[in-house]
Measured scan of single mutants.
Amino acid sequence: EPREEEAEKYIKRANGDYDKAQELAKKDGNEEIAEAIKEYKKR
């Protein structure tokens, strides 16, 4: 799923820090991806 791939990219950029990844996504205006990262975190 493209959303998950995007989320993974942010998580990698944030060195595995989900909260930081979420912030990066929000900064880029990717609210949807920020949500996907939140879902990811719950797994």
Results as ranks from 00 to 15, higher is better:
40 Y>Q: 08
42 K>L: 13
28 D>H: 04
31 E>T: 11
26 K>R: 13
43 R>V: 12
24 L>N: 06
40 Y>C: 04
10 Y>C: 00
13 R>F: 11
17 D>A: 03
11 I>W: 03
37 I>E: 02
6 E>I: 10
35 E>T: 09
1 E>Q: 11
10 Y>I: 02
15 N>I: 02
40 Y>A: 09
27 K>L: 14
36 A>R: 07
25 A>E: 00
6 E>W: 10
35 E>F: 07
32 E>C: 03
15 N>T: 04
33 I>M: 07
31 E>W: 15
10 Y>P: 01
28 D>V: 02
2 P>A: 14
13 R>L: 14
37 I>S: 01
42 K>E: 15
5 E>G: 08
8 E>M: 15
30 N>G: 04
3 R>A: 12
10 Y>N: 01
38 K>P: 02
33 I>K: 01
22 Q>I: 15
41 K>G: 09
42 K>M: 11
23 E>N: 06
26 K>S: 09
43 R>Y: 12
20 K>E: 07
5 E>L: 11
17 D>V: 03
9 K>V: 10
38 K>G: 09
19 D>R: 05
3 R>G: 13
15 N>P: 02
19 D>G: 05
28 D>L: 03
8 E>H: 09
4 E>F: 15
1 E>K: 13
17 D>T: 00
5 E>D: 12
5 E>K: 12
19 D>P: 02
18 Y>T: 05
13 R>E: 13
16 G>N: 06
36 A>I: 14
3 R>C: 07
32 E>R: 10
9 K>S: 11
34 A>D: 03
20 K>G: 05
35 E>M: 09
1 E>V: 13
26 K>I: 15
38 K>W: 10
6 E>C: 06
9 K>G: 10
7 A>E: 04
3 R>P: 12
2 P>W: 15
41 K>H: 06
33 I>Q: 03
27 K>V: 09
14 A>T: 05
28 D>I: 01
31 E>I: 12
21 A>E: 00
37 I>T: 01
8 E>S: 06
16 G>R: 03
2 P>M: 14
43 R>Q: 14
14 A>K: 00
41 K>Q: 15
27 K>W: 10
33 I>V: 13
9 K>N: 11
9 K>F: 09
11 I>S: 00
38 K>C: 05
28 D>Q: 04
30 N>R: 14
20 K>T: 07
31 E>G: 08
23 E>V: 07
42 K>P: 05
40 Y>T: 06
8 E>K: 13
35 E>V: 08
36 A>L: 15
22 Q>S: 08
27 K>S: 12
21 A>I: 00
39 E>V: 07
4 E>A: 10
31 E>V: 12
10 Y>M: 01
8 E>Y: 12
11 I>P: 01
2 P>D: 14
9 K>Q: 12
11 I>L: 12
13 R>W: 14
9 K>M: 12
39 E>N: 07
21 A>M: 00
26 K>G: 05
36 A>F: 15
38 K>T: 06
33 I>G: 03
32 E>N: 08
24 L>D: 06
37 I>Y: 01
35 E>I: 09
30 N>W: 07
35 E>A: 10
43 R>W: 12
18 Y>V: 06
4 E>T: 09
39 E>D: 09
21 A>N: 00
8 E>V: 13
7 A>L: 14
3 R>I: 15
13 R>I: 12
23 E>D: 10
21 A>G: 02
30 N>T: 03
10 Y>D: 02
7 A>W: 10
37 I>P: 00
3 R>V: 14
3 R>N: 13
17 D>L: 03
6 E>A: 11
7 A>C: 04
13 R>G: 06
1 E>I: 13
16 G>H: 06
16 G>P: 00
4 E>V: 11
